[in-house]
Design a protein around this nucleic acid. Structure first.
Lengths: 226, 226
DNA sequence: GCTCCTAATTTAATCACTTGATTAAGTTAG
DNA sequence: CTAACTTAATCAAGTGATTAAATTAGGAGC
């Protein structure tokens, strides 16, 4: 789609291969995916995988670089804005807590939107597989994105609740928040049956955002919490 | 281990094959797992898979029957007790809500324990894979276990909050609760890095139960919700 | 603007190997 | 003795990787 400017032949080949590989790896997993199928889907010769990426593994990791770049493109502006507003918060007080909670909601809204948008593509499955037993490809994603995002969430949660950001409890609660969002993607089979949702539509995402916000505020809005 | 009473040779063979298959399928996934490796691990001939289970697929589904049976064995008593106590609840009032919330906490405590206990074995990965694109093997698990469990959770949540059990909101919140627990297993890579947990120990599980209960009570304890 | 040449890229063919399934011949237990 | 069970051997199909040969694009020289 946006490939008009890719200069050399090789660049184009690499690009179509990565896109095809994202699909096939996402669908079948690393082992079950065959390089021939990827090449056929990309409309190029199978040997080009070896030529351009060194082999199947190299292509796999290139796919993760690609995903990480796309996610970063999407989440970085939000993270930057949140961090900027974080600086301007009053040093203490109820308002500081309230604002931090609002920033937290903002991040998760973006996350829900991103997960929802990409849930049709194969990359949710890809990342999920890597979560189970991480290969070097996982580090690409964690170091650039997930880790930072989790840090930011934990930090905001600490401010919003008065917890210690370094505490185990605070990090657990941060992950639990993430779980409330992830479940609709990682437990897709159960979700689609229990909700009777065939596909995650825009309306469903809106409802998820709403319910998540309710949950967030019920848990942490100023007043009592640990 | 508990195989002293399995009568015929065939039964024993089936059993060791299923146990080996649970490991290998869990580790490698359906496609990447090889019947030869399973057979070698089980200490039997590869052709026995075809003989006893009809083929690789048949063995795979037998593994799920096995898992479902084990989970059922573990969760059924809890579900029964909860359902029994549910009957004895007062028809309305704050106490009814409080008790329902308590039952909810009880279920999740059992779930956290079960997930934690089995997280070392391969079956979390197995089920997770099936969640992504469910095969007939998934229905075995959903119909017997997950579906019922989700129904029960939704029902209790409805009582505890005054929501309508059939409403979309209530079902969403039920899944979100489950997500708070699942995340530590499905996002294992991120969890182990963020928490710096190498493995889910008994102490970690205790802390998870504690934090989950805090979250549950903060969200739904009597007073304001909906 | 043209040709020519070289390096980058692509192709088809082939390699050794593993896969799940099947078969016929064996072995065991009741 | 017979039916249940197990074995080793073999099958066709598909795997990732590699190779040498063919093709292509783009800059140098005129």
């Amino acid at each position: 789609m946006t490939r008009a400017d890719s200069s050399t032949r090789g660049d184009i080949t690499r690009e179509v291969l990565i896109e095809a590989a994202l699909d096939v790896f996402g669908h079948d997993g690393f082992d079950a995916a065959s390089t021939r199928r990827i090449a056929r889907k990309a409309g190029v010769n199978q040997a080009l995988i070896g030529y351009h990426f060194g082999g199947k593994r190299g292509l796999y990791e290139a796919v993760f670089e690609h995903i990480a770049a796309q996610m970063q493109l999407r989440m970085e502006p939000v993270a930057l804005e949140v961090r900027a507003r974080l600086e301007q918060l009053p040093a203490t007080g109820t308002i500081r807590r309230q604002k931090a909670l609002e920033l937290l909601a903002q991040i998760f809204e973006a996350l829900i939107g991103m997960f929802g948008e990409y849930s049709a593509t194969g990359w949710v499955r890809l990342v999920l597989r890597e979560q189970q037993d991480p290969s070097p490809a996982f580090d690409i994603m964690y170091d650039r994105l997930m880790g930072r995002m989790l840090q930011l969430i934990t930090q905001l949660l600490a401010i919003a609740t008065g917890m210690d950001a370094a505490s185990e409890a605070c990090r657990i609660r941060a992950l639990m928040l993430l779980g409330q969002v992830l479940v609709f993607h990682v437990a897709r089979g159960s979700t689609s049956r229990h909700m009777q949702w065939q596909v995650l539509s825009e309306e469903h995402l809106t409802e998820l955002k709403k319910q998540f916000r309710l949950s967030l505020e019920a848990q942490f809005s100023t007043g009592a919490s640990e």
